[in-house]
Amino acid sequence: MSRIVRGHRHTAVSNVRRGETLSAWLMLLPFLIFFALFVIYPLVQNFIYSLTNYNFGPKHDFVGLKNYIQLFSDEWFLASLKNTVVYAFFSVIFLTGLGLVISVMLNKRSRMVKAARTVLILPYATSMVAVSMVWLFLLDPTTGYINKLLIELGVSTLPTWLNDPELALPSLIFINIWKNLGYCMIIYLSGLQNIPTELYEAAEVDGASTLRRHISITLPQIAPVTFFVLITNCIEAFKTFEQVQIMTQGGPMTSTTTVVLQIYRRAFEDFRMGYASAIAVVLFGIIFIMTVINLLLFKRRSEDK
């Protein structure tokens, strides 16, 4: 008798299990189809394309590592890599540093502070196209508003901003900082709010000054968040495309061309998809390494806790 009951219960449990597996797969199916077809498969296919001379035509041949070898002598690609690294480096330094300073100052409860925060996030909610258009106008050498103000201030040799190979990239970096400061602030503020207030209270009892408190409490406590902000901004900076495509088209000369701009140009203007895929693989490699570093440090951080 007891055996029968146990057997019965066993089938009931496995029926529930089977039902669970079935519902799980059925509910996942719609998403999985899109995800497999348009995220996972293209990543694999991109590697394969990078070893061919694919050009959207019906046939393509395997060319081995030829595309990759060609990268080393492609001065456009090398310039784009250099520009992207410079762009990422300076964007990240200012975004992480300035972002932290501002967040510490705005880590208060008052109506003014709340309004200031909203203003700071506004550029982040605006599209990069819109941002580029406004700055294109501000920086225009003849009709632009900034040069008009400079004339008023008595500046005689006016900068030509985006038309100047020396100033074009720094201008783009500045605009990127202007746009993404709000994002850094959101992340930093949530990190700051997680610092136990007892630490500050204890330091205040010890008579530590505000600056002193920030250096010996805020900085070490916020370090993991700082690193997160640093890496995510770096990854974003390596994907820069819209700004360059709209504002400078990569010029003057090679001064503002970026890696993604090169992928776009080779693929959709020259139709050298195979070669462009090789550039995309390099970009993926760089971003992959940064992501892994970020994950490892995140894991260590959560194990410490």
């Binding site: 348009f38 293209p42 990543l43 994907k239 995309a280 970009l283 971003i287």
Partner: peptide, 19 residues
């Protein structure tokens, strides 16, 4: 799926267009 969040669309753009 976590890994998928880290794949930049700029990298998979060409195969997606061809698909």
């Amino acid at each position: 799926i976590l890994a998928g969040m880290m794949i930049p669309p700029q990298v998979t753009m060409i195969p997606v267009v061809s698909l």
